[in-house]
Amino acid sequence: MNRLLLLGGLGLLVLAAGLASLAVGSVSLGWARMAAVLGGAGDDVARTILVDLRLPRALLGLGVGAMLGVSGATLQGYLRNPLAEPSVLGVSSTAALGAVIALYFGLANWHPLLLPLLAIAGAFAGLGLLGLLSGRSESPLTLILAGIAVSTLAVAGTSLSLNLSPNPFAAMEIMTWLMGSLEDRSFEHVWIALPCIAIGLLLLLWDGRALDALTLGEDGATSLGIDLRRTRLRLLLGVAIGVGGAVAISGSIGFVGLIVPHLVRPLTDRSPSAILLPSVLAGAALLTLADVAVRIIPTTAELKLGVVTAFLGVPIFLVHLMRERRLW
């Protein structure tokens, strides 16, 4: 498929998803009132709902989705493993652990921003541990094994906090956060997440060519002039900062990073660099639409985003697995 057509189509999809996210909520505003607010006029109620409640949620959906999509695409290329996703490095688990610590000790009640900040600190702690464990090795296997170790440790820490939580409400609060959601997020959250995501995107989009060269293995890539050590540094920093910032705001949202690259890959020439930008756009659209679905599906308690993406992810992934399997 023509690349411009693909990017254009996905761009339109992102726009549609963003508008849908603005339009859908517990109060129906109607297109006329929304258009008035977007045009700079409109009544105060509509303005508050749209700008203070729905706009941050839409922006976060787009940003978090873009970050998860591109980090999945980059990691699959770098590790040369179609099952890689942002959580394989363990940094999203350590970010979640940071947030859980904030909830467990009640720090989140002192100031609402302590939670995302501790989550980002958790992501960096995870990155440091990952660096220590994987050392100077350039093999993808070492990195995956180190990631599993980091992730297991973080998950164990999270379980421990649930185990020791002083009362059921604290445990419930932690569980709810872990399920992932974009509910009730404000612009303060946007200002924490989006800069992290922007840095993450820049770092990850840089190395498309190195990922292509890695199709030929480490020796092949190095002999084509790729400095694998720098590539790896950019990749680890990009995932830690970007996904750390995203998880800090949204909680753990699985499957987006895994399935988005698989969705766009058949529409490209299948080289790792070709799926990066489409994964940014498709990730943004997919997560935002899932967040719209969360609000539309009638349930007694609002569905959590991470739950919906997991349910969405499995069938999509299975269909693609069946179709792709003969190619690997």
């Binding site: 290329g77 040369r80 060519r209 292509d212 060269a213 890695l214 199709t215 030929l216 293995g217 092949g220 084509l224 002039g225 790729i226 020439d269 299948r270 080289s271 790792p272 190619l327 690997w328």
Partner: peptide, 17 residues
């Protein structure tokens, strides 16, 4: 070693990196 199912032309083009 070939980790992704690239077309022959795309693969040869890697030599220009």
């Amino acid at each position: 070693t070939l980790h992704w199912p690239l077309t022959v032309e795309r693969l040869v083009a890697l030599g220009r990196l």
